[in-house]
Write a protein that binds this DNA or RNA. Structure first.
Lengths: 345, 345
DNA sequence: TTGTAGGCGTTATCAT
DNA sequence: ATGATAACGCCTACAA
């Protein structure tokens, strides 16, 4: 219970606290024998320095913090693993901080900066519609990773940004389906009020249809109910089942704005006794591993997750260590042709 | 840059620091007008209390910490979401702490206890083969969640444990396959030196074979190379492909010790031109959502993840708030019959 | 090479 | 209801 502190260690060793401090922090100017003796006592008594006290005193921390909003995103675990690896490679320590659903990520960051004094921050996920003045409070370099570009994220030279162009990639997929001869493409979109990637992907779809001379049919735009997690297999299944039951509209292709939704839709179609791609073509978005392992393999837009994660850290370190300028980096995603779509011309 | 502290706020407000402290901490004995005035200044100057200083001074924290080892586990995001919800419901705050691959989770916990003084800890994942004396250093109640029971985790009354019985459930699945008439069941196991759930599931398989009068064929036990993440679709695919190419042994069923591995195996079998379950039955373990959405639906052991997560928090709070005794809670998993297995009698 | 003392920003105790 | 002040545990000048 009563846990030991640096003073106790000093007393036990018969030295001053600064000597103990030097020992545990690998300072050069200390007698090796003294150090060994101290470390011995430290081990024996299980002395563990109090990080709060350390953080309070320090100005420097040699740490990168990653703030995660919405842990359910299937990309994140892969990205976090890369963050961890890359950050360690640079001999920095890695602070992973969770941001609750209702919480403001910038407020959390502000708190964290005071508390742990990280040298850089990665914001992962979330919507990020913050005012410029709020963002400017962040006195630590940061990069927005895998966050949909919204209008409020105009060219600001004081932070970095790594993502794909959701609009353009969604356009690419829709255009691909059009070129396959599909004229009636159902889209399984996010919630109607979505302001982030959900909206961007929907708009890419709209634009592609238009450019292909296909008139937008609102009946083919399916939205998730508000307040529900809409990038799920469950949503895809439910929505698709309902549509098939209703038989209100016909279509030859389904474009789901995420692979999870697409897989849910596939299930609904199969259960309904229809075949993919013979009866319906199905396309997704994200390029999850499962898209490749699914049966049939799913046509999707593969985001280069690993590269994006690596770039995130690289850019951050460039800014942190080399005082490089902030970058806005847009990665090109790849359209993966799977067995789930077919030519209907 | 120069960030404001409680003294500055006090000076600006023309009051003492303790009054400011009372205001920001919702202490009762403060004049509402004074408080309003202070809070006004706090907002205007974006004052944010320094948590390190707070933690240093406080003895109490009203927080539960969750330590996560191996973020790639597909269960975790679901569990973490429930942890977050349940912890918030109790008006506690939620500290999520990542444990690096090489790090010792107990050491991390020890550090965290000093730093943040949580009232309880959840260990999620990892192997947890710690000596009793090491565990006893933890002065804070903790529960091991979804951690394979190993021999070193004997009946210890000073911590809780929530999991499924990997041995028994694996036995159940293997027995099920035997009862379907399969006599040659290939198992896609973990690494050979696995000491945790990988070993437990393998032993369940062995025992079930024995009880069904089937002699163990070592050629049917496939292990992952050491050092690789073996609960992946990639491993399942690679291993299964190799086996099919080699044609060294024959079998009628494949039992993968995780759903991810099973899906990888399914892909390999399908690509090889074989049909599931006509040519090979395939079974998994875990009960991921995808098992239900996969085509064919996967026969698997569904772990009651949500209930386990809820129980984890419930037990922890019982110990923390009500001084209840620690519990070892074994959840029963459910064998989900999918389309991937068939009767061969 | 080592020890002493002050201060990091808070909260808590004690006066007032 | 409010203010001064002593910790909390550590690091780091500065002194020895």
């Amino acid at each position: 219970m009563e846990s030991i502190n640096i003073k106790d260690v000093a007393r036990i060793c018969g030295v001053g606290v600064s000597t103990v401090s030097r020992a545990i922090n690998n300072h050069p100017d200390i007698n090796p024998e003294t150090k060994d003796m101290i470390m011995q006592v430290v081990k024996e008594h299980n002395y563990i320095p109090n990080n709060s006290a350390r953080n309070l005193k320090r100005t420097d921390s040699k740490a990168i913090a990653v703030l995660i909003k919405g842990i359910s995103n299937p990309f994140f675990s892969k990205m976090i693993r890369i963050f961890e690896k890359e950050i360690h490679k640079k001999k920095y320590s890695f602070i992973m901080q969770h941001v609750d659903a209702g919480e403001d990520e910038v407020d959390v960051a502000l708190e964290l900066i005071k508390e742990k004094k990280p040298r850089g921050i990665v914001f992962l996920g979330g919507f990020f519609s913050h005012s410029k003045e709020k963002l400017e409070q962040l006195a630590v370099p940061f990069v927005l990773s895998t966050i949909g570009m919204t209008d409020s994220l105009e060219e600001s030279p004081f932070y970095s940004w790594v993502s794909v162009d959701d609009f353009a990639e969604s356009y690419k997929m829709t255009d691909y389906l059009c070129k396959l001869g599909h004229k009636r493409i159902l889209i399984l979109a996010a919630t109607k009020d979505d302001e982030s990637i959900g909206r961007l992907r929907l708009e890419g779809y709209r634009k592609a249809l238009k450019d292909n001379g296909i008139e937008l049919d609102e009946d083919l735009c399916v939205f998730s109910g508000v307040g529900r997690d809409c990038y799920t297999m469950d949503y895809g299944f439910m929505a698709m089942s309902r549509i098939l039951e209703e038989k209100k509209t016909d279509f030859t292709a389904v474009y789901a704005i995420s692979d999870s939704i697409a897989i849910g839709a596939c299930k609904a179609i199969t259960e309904y006794g229809m075949k993919i791609p013979e009866d319906y073509s199905v396309a997704g978005f994200d390029g999850l591993d499962i898209a490749h392992y699914y049966n049939p393999t799913l046509t999707t837009i593969r985001q280069p997750v690993e590269e994006m994660a690596e770039a995130t850290i690289k850019i951050l370190f460039d800014v942190v260590s080399n005082h490089a300028d902030h970058q806005k980096r847009v990665f090109k995603a790849e359209l993966m042709e799977g067995e789930s779509t077919r030519n209907v011309k």
